[in-house]
């Protein structure tokens, strides 16, 4: 599935070069549909993401936002429609994108630094040097030789972030990576992700349940309801953003109200055919996806 990378191997994560449009990829999604059996998860979805833009996707469990991210990451095939990265189908642009999962998914039998260099080729000394640089950028260089089992949940996600960034992705996909962290660690991680995004200029797509997180980080927040985009809200706040500011709070409230409004209308919006399946939500959906994945 993977062709050897034609891009030079990343070497310097900490370069202070100013981000330019070329470091982020343009994403263009057209008429995207995804069904699991008879259940349609995404209908005719269109979405354009500018190079270097930070997009947040919010929505209820089971609305299709994680499915959209898995399609963007080329983990699942679309039923129909297209996803283009800089005009090329996503299946041929794998090297440009990296995904951060909800759980860190570090290999417990590899040391922290070896996890960070997973999938990279080169001499051991060179890989280690690259890993230390990447770990340094997430503030974990001193844990390079530990096992993942010795780290806290937040530290594991920081290692996962370093592992994603060492590939110098032009598109970073974040699937609720902070969902399992405590509130303080989460705010620290949000700051870290924002700083690294500003420094490297990649395009970022963040799926989250947390409207505050979406407004704090994103240039634009979209809401997905029943497999379609129902809100497209630019966030024109200066960075770094203060969570207590009136403009921030106003915007957060606007999005939140829009997200919650669906609850009152849920019954008429839900297709009458199989309401119970509709309500089963994200968990059963991902179970179906796992079942569809053979072990090799």
């Amino acid at each position: 599935m993977y062709s050897p990378s034609t891009r030079p191997q990343p070497t310097d994560l900490d370069s202070n070069s100013t981000p330019d449009a070329s470091s982020g990829v343009a994403v263009s999604v057209a008429a995207l549909q995804k069904s699991f059996g008879a259940r349609r998860v995404l209908h005719d979805l269109d979405l354009t993401i500018r190079p270097g833009e930070f997009l947040a996707i919010v929505g209820h469990s089971g609305c299709g936002k994680s499915t959209l991210l898995r399609l963007l990451a080329n983990l699942d095939p679309a039923s129909s429609g297209s996803i283009l990265l800089d005009g090329t189908p996503v299946a041929r642009q794998q090297e440009d994108l990296r995904l951060m999962f909800q759980d860190a998914r570090l290999l417990p039998w590899k040391s922290v630094w070896a996890n960070v260099t997973l999938g990279l080729k080169g001499s051991r000394a060179d890989l280690r040097r690259q890993a230390l640089e990447a770990l340094n950028s997430v503030g974990l260089a001193e844990r390079a030789d530990d096992w993942p089992g010795q780290l806290s949940g937040g530290q594991r996600q920081r290692v996962a972030l370093a592992r994603a960034l060492i590939h110098k992705p032009r598109l970073l996909l974040l699937d609720e990576p902070l969902g399992a962290l405590d509130a303080l660690t989460r705010i620290e991680m949000q700051g870290l992700i924002e700083r690294l995004w500003l420094r490297h200029g990649f395009t970022a797509v963040l799926v989250t349940h947390d409207v505050t997180e979406a407004v704090a980080l994103a240039d634009r927040v979209i809401l997905i309801e029943d497999g379609a985009i129902t809100l497209d809200q630019p966030v024109a706040l200066a960075r770094p953003r203060e969570r207590g500011e009136p403009a921030f709070a106003d915007l957060e409230q606007t999005v939140l109200n829009r997200v919650l409004r669906q609850d009152h209308q849920a019954a008429p919006v839900t297709p009458p055919a199989q309401p119970t399946r509709q309500q089963r939500g994200d968990a059963s959906l991902s179970a179906a996806q796992w079942a569809a994945y053979p072990s090799l």
Binding site: M1, Y2, S5, A73, N74, L75, Q94, E95, R98, L99, F101, D103, R105, L107, K110, L118, G119, R163, H167, W290, Y293, S295, L296
Partner: peptide
């Protein structure tokens, strides 16, 4: 299975997935 999926998306081929 999540680790296998992660390995694939980080560029490991079938041999890498098996050995690592």
């Amino acid at each position: 299975k999540g680790l296998i999926e992660m390995g694939k998306s980080y560029g490991l081929g079938p041999i890498g997935i098996f050995t690592q």
